[in-house]
Structure formats: structure tokens, C-alpha cells
Design a protein around this nucleic acid. Structure first.
Lengths: 245, 245
DNA sequence: CTTGTCTGTAACAGCGTGCAACAAAATCAA
DNA sequence: TTGATTTTGTTGCACGCTGTTACAGACAAG
């Protein structure tokens, strides 16, 4: 199972950034959102495993959004509220939220809830990504997330830089799913909010090229890290994940 | 049976674009519309297999339009609504809608409903184009949809560009059926809103020429990709499909 | 035949991507 | 701290893909 992709929906940049950063540090893919339309976009464009939804969203109302999402979707939702009032919690459950957290919350609590909801949501226990877990295998290659070691099919160890490793992780977590440059950039930018972090330039292109140079047998005709013209990049190979607690 | 042609009627550009794009990615021909007159135009000018009709259409009322269409036509209609209110659903069924979906909806759900209505509407199950099919054979040629590899009767591998591949796919999916330039263009344009995408020009003609140059033994006297003067192009050869789920 | 419409195609232009080379920034050693 | 080394982002150019245009040939109707 791939690394869970979470949507962090909050209109406050700081909160959003903190949560995003924390979740990423703990092995999740966290995508910051600030509106319902952004949520829909993500839902349309790719897999989303859990939505952390702030109740207060400027004009929009988190509870209503939750209700609407729940009407048709089956994505787990955790409501987050700055208010501790219980009626909010009730309202939340009524519209089908999977859990409810009051701000300010203990980061570990957040993590615990997220994991609980994720594992409750789906049957397979391996759904939840455990940091300590960690061997990815693809096309003869091995990536040991714990030791951060990449081993070629011939058994040679390949040294990847931090960003290269991060890129590989995102790709391994989303095999066969085309990722936008923006999505990739957001995932790489571990400093919390990726807002304008990658506004300029073609850093991702270059990074992809560098990674290709290290893991593709023929970088000119990539078989693992394929280009989706006009869209972004895809990891076009099946990936086996081997985990341990 | 040809690829189903769907009309996506919604006055919001984003929604329309998203739905259109998603449907196209899944093998349908999706034509964006924003008014009743546009619908009528399409109904007049060509085959339409299903209409996805937004209930809120600016000044116009989707339900009324639905009723009017139903009065004269027998095109299946799925109503789409931003409101979850049930009376809308009821009203929809009363005027003869084939199904009803509330926005925001799960893309896969949309797809499921569309397919259900289409197959319910009548005709063989093969109506729905299956993208998961893997190997096409025609006149000695082979096209492996999974690897995107085209192999000539002599066993040589031929490199096709993205659009060329897309064109070939549409043709292979509809052997012996003349396809309009518009139909082809719509199928190729995966970038969402095709509105003016193909308004101008003869891109299709040129594309066809290029594909001919690669797969016809004598591009001057095409045997596979024939021209239907005044109409469009036909793939004039039997195609064997070897599919898997 | 002529005329007008439709199609084939070469030539060109714009865009996105790969990549090398450079510059800036981060990391490390002392 | 300083300076060396590595990593990362930027820039410029080349190249392939794609749509447009213009013109010539093909076809249909008269």
C-alpha cells in the first residue's frame, strides 16, 4: 500500500503549514488546501486517503463541506475545530465525520487519530504507513527507507542526495499515478507550507533528470520515471512495499 | 459500436472542464455545452448518447430543459445538482431523467452511473470503450496499449508520438466506423475543455498524414487509414482485441 | 471542359522538455 | 570563523512534438 495522502484544509497559513509539516515528518504525504474547490481538484486528480478539515473556513463552512463530501465520497474525514464546543462535535458526527479534534491539539494526538481513522477506514492493516517500515522494491531495485540506501539490481549501492531521495519516495508512494510538478514540489518542500516555494523555475525537471541519471539504465529512454507531457511525471512500475513495525 | 458521445452541460467552466476531462480520460467523447441551444445544436448535428445536465444553468432551469428534451428526444439524461435536496431528485425522475448525481461527486461514481445508464439505455456491453484492453492486432501490426509499442508486420518497432498514439487508439476502438474530425479531435484533446481547442485548422488532417507515414506501406494509397471525403476518416481493417481486465 | 470544395503535405512557428553549464546555497571540516 | 565540498536552483540552448498556414492536387458537380 502506498503512503497515505492527506489533505490539510485550513484557511490559516500557519496552522496549515504546521500540520502539513508535522504530518510529512511522520511519513505521510500532506497536501495543503484552502478551499472546497482545491479539495475537489485533488479528489479528481488523484488518490486521497484522508481529509483533515477545519470547521472554520472563512466564508465556507467545514461542516457543510463535510456533509457534501460525505454525500457522495467515501474518503475519511477528520474535522478540526478551534472551538471546543461540543455541539460542533455532534454536528460533525452527524454529517458523517470519522473523528473530531479540537484546536489546539497535541500533535501526537493528531497523529494517533489520523492513524486510527486510516486503519479503521480500510481493512488491510498495512494501510497505515509506519516510519520504521521500509523496504520498497521495484524492477530489481531496493530502497531501504530506514537506512536511506538505494541498491541497484546488480547489488551496487547508489548515493542519492536528500531531494533525490525525497523525490524517489513520492514516486514510490504513487506508482502509476501522474504527479504534477506542483504536487511533487509540494511534497519535496518539507519546510511546511509549499505555497510559493516552487513558484519559479524548472527545479523539478532538473531533479528528475538527476534521479534518472542515477537509477535509469538508459536515462535517455526512461522506463521507471516517465514524462507525461503537459502534466508532470509518473513512476511507471509496480512497487512492492515491505514493512515492519 | 462507436465511442459514446456525451454532452456535459454546465455553466461553470471549471466543473465542465473537470467532468469533460475525466470522461475523456476514461474513453468517452465528451462535448462541453453551456446552454440549451448548444445542446440542440449537438443533437441536430450528430449522435449523442447521453447528456449530463446540470440543474442550475444560470437563467435556464435544468429540470425544465430535461422535461423539454424528454418530450421529443430519447437521449438518456443524467441530472447533476449542486444541491442535495431530495425534491430535486424526485423532480428529476418525474421529468424522466435516467439518473441523478449530487455535486460534488466521486469521479468513479460518475463513471459508474454513466456506464450504467448507457448500458441500461440499450445496446451491447461493448458500447463502453475499455482502456484496460492491452493488445490490438490489425493487418499484421501489433499495438501494445500497455507499453505503447507499435510493431510492424516485419517485427520492427515504430515510434509514435503521443497524439499519433492517441489517434491510433481511437481508430482501433472504432474499426470500419467513419469518424468525424470533430470526434477525433475531441478524443485526442485530453486537456479538459475542448471548446475552442479544435475550432481552427486542420490539425487532424496533418496528424492523420503523419500517422499514415508511419504505418501505411504506401502513404499515398492508404489501406488502413482511409479518407471519407466530406466526412472524416475510417480505419478500414478488422481489428483483433486481446484484452485483460 | 471549368469551377469550387475538400484533402495531402511541406514549411514554419510555438511550446514543453532534457540537459549542460553556471550560480547560489547548504553542509562540512578544521 | 574560513574555506572546501556537496547539493540545489537557474538559465540558455537544442530538440521533438504539435498546430497553422499556404499551396497543389484530387474530386464532384455543372
Amino acid at each position: 500500500m502506498a503512503i497515505p495522502r492527506l489533505l490539510v484544509v485550513d484557511d490559516d497559513v500557519d496552522t496549515r503549514g504546521m500540520m502539513t509539516q508535522y504530518l510529512r515528518q511522520n511519513g505521510f504525504i500532506a497536501l495543503p488546501c484552502d478551499s472546497e474547490s482545491a479539495i475537489m481538484e485533488h479528489l479528481t486528480n488523484g488518490r486521497v486517503d484522508l481529509i483533515l478539515l477545519d470547521v472554520m473556513l472563512g466564508d465556507e463552512n467545514g461542516v457543510e463541506i463535510c456533509a457534501r463530501l460525505r454525500d457522495e465520497q467515501d474518503v475519511p474525514i477528520i474535522l478540526v475545530s478551534a472551538l471546543s464546543a461540543d455541539h460542533h462535535r455532534m454536528a460533525g458526527y452527524q454529517v458523517g465525520a470519522d473523528d473530531y479534534i479540537a484546536k489546539p491539539f497535541n500533535p501526537d494526538l493528531l497523529l494517533a487519530r489520523v492513524r486510527a481513522v486510516l486503519s479503521r477506514a480500510k481493512r488491510s492493516a498495512s494501510l497505515v504507513y509506519r516510519r520504521s517500515v521500509s523496504t520498497f522494491r521495484f524492477a530489481g531495485w531496493t530502497y531501504d527507507a530506514k537506512l536511506d540506501e538505494v541498491t541497484s539490481p546488480q547489488g551496487f549501492q547508489v548515493a542519492l542526495s536528500r531531494k533525490e531521495t525525497a523525490l524517489l519516495k513520492v514516486l514510490l508512494a504513487n506508482p502509476h499515478i501522474p504527479l504534477t510538478r506542483e504536487e511533487i514540489a509540494t511534497s519535496l518542500d518539507v519546510t511546511g507550507e509549499g505555497q510559493g516555494a516552487e513558484a519559479s523555475g524548472r527545479a523539478i525537471d532538473v531533479l528528475v533528470g538527476r534521479l534518472r541519471g542515477k537509477i535509469e539504465s538508459d536515462p535517455k529512454q526512461p522506463e521507471l520515471l516517465r514524462t507525461e507531457r503537459g502534466i508532470g511525471y509518473v513512476f511507471a512500475t509496480d512497487v512492492d512495499v515491505e514493512g515492519s513495525a
